[in-house]
Design a binder for these strands. Sequence first.
RNA 1: GAUCCGGUGGGCGAAUGGUUAAGCCACGAGGCUUUCAACCUCGUAAUUGCGGGUUCGAAUCCCGUCCGGAUCCCCA
Length: 474
Amino acid sequence: MTMRTRFAPSPTGVLHIGGARTALFNWLLARRHGGAFVLRIEDTDTERSTRESIDRIIEAMSWLGLQADEGPVLQTDRLDRYRAVARQLLDAGLAYHCYCSREELAAMREDQRSRGLKPRYDGRCRTRTRPVPGADAVVRFKTPEAGRVRVRDLIRGEVTFDNSELDDLVILRPDGVPTYNFSVVVDDSDMGITHVVRGDDHLNNTPRQINILNALGLRLPEYAHVPMILGADGSRLSKRHGAVNVTDYREAGYLPEAVLNYMVRLGWSHGDQELFDVDEMIGAFSLEQVNESAAAFDPDKFLWVNEQWIRRTPSARISPLLATFLEGDGVEDADLNTGPPLEEIVEVQRHRARTLTEMAEKSRFVYNEPDTYAPKAAKQHLRGVALPVLRRLHQCLGELGEWSVETTQAAVESVADELTLKMGKVAQPLRVAVTGESASPGIGQTLALIGQEKTLRRLAKAVEFVEARIARTR
RNA sequence: GAUCCGGUGGGCGAAUGGUUAAGCCACGAGGCUUUCAACCUCGUAAUUGCGGGUUCGAAUCCCGUCCGGAUCCCCA
């Protein structure tokens, strides 16, 4: 039988790292085994589900390249089907109507809890023969009272639950909308899902689902419960831990390849390999190597992975992305067009940036003249002693016929020789003058990217700055 | 509280009864150097949560215990 996996998010928010990794694992499995990956939207919580969330989830998945082979299938489009299955259970005496009010149930639970018991529905409507007038009716599944359920989990091994620990769960609300544990079972079965791979927060739900499957006489899928992703402090990953939404990472200048790569290594490993492109993941992924323990999300390592991908991704692909980040950073569209080819900037910066945001920040100097000098840098390098250096630099660079990394580099070196100064005394003032910062790419590269005209203008401005400063201290 | 799952350096994790417990991130030192990076070298860091047991031998198997997480909703 061909493998069929699925990702079944509830559209009550955006796609976050945990969900994305679950989607990735499912997608990888399907790709690896030549099967199908289905996207199902679990929107039976009509209060909280939104169309916008659906769109955002799909958008995030497509940014990551996790295309579904089938779907999205919306559960709200299948309500008739769930009702029919519930009817079937009702007719077979495997489910019953319950008229208990929410208040009554809450009181029951509180009472049990106060007595140190596990809160469970006590089945008081099980034997009811006629409806309660005026009361809403839900449908409850009749959980077997005795026996145990064995879950064969591909990651955890065999996990058993005692039916006495379970209670009769609601499968249909008064309005005929199914609850999670029921719709999941019907859908996974109808869709021919062979492998249910999901977060281990669902492990405890599995015996209930298996009981329903058994009552319906349906075949059980394989289960694999993957460990959760925790925040750096060991608690469940949440907004407190910084960005957790996939889209946040796109905006922060992460490459989808890097997001995928970092996620796949969270809870899964393949020897000591750290970097995987999508094809490598598909070729190497297996449930057997998925860890059993929860993993903490580590922003530092994520940054490192992104840096690795910035390095190995062709500049032709990075350039247009860099352009949008530069624009977001205040660089004019027109300047982008008249400036140096973006590929050149990428080549120069790819070892110096861990994110595209960082790359853009560090590349602004190419287009925009510094409006202020970094205080520390100015204090240290734009001093009186630098004045003759800057003037001489302005002259020599102004006389340069060909403007390139090599020629500008040579010019700066010859000025240093001529004034018998070490490179640091020449390149640093110059760097601050043209970039406003004390750190930038190699001085030749920096000048080549800025261009002769702008370099000279900035140099002149720096000379004025130093002159003014001397005048002031006098 | 009950049930279920988990626990290897600060983080990710390798090692599925057998040499000094891999590798990566982070961190520290040095090298290179016009700055920042990158790169190279070296280093700090674990009595495998703890306690017992089985065994010639235990991170690995068994028992107990502690800690963490999940579930116990007309959320998914």
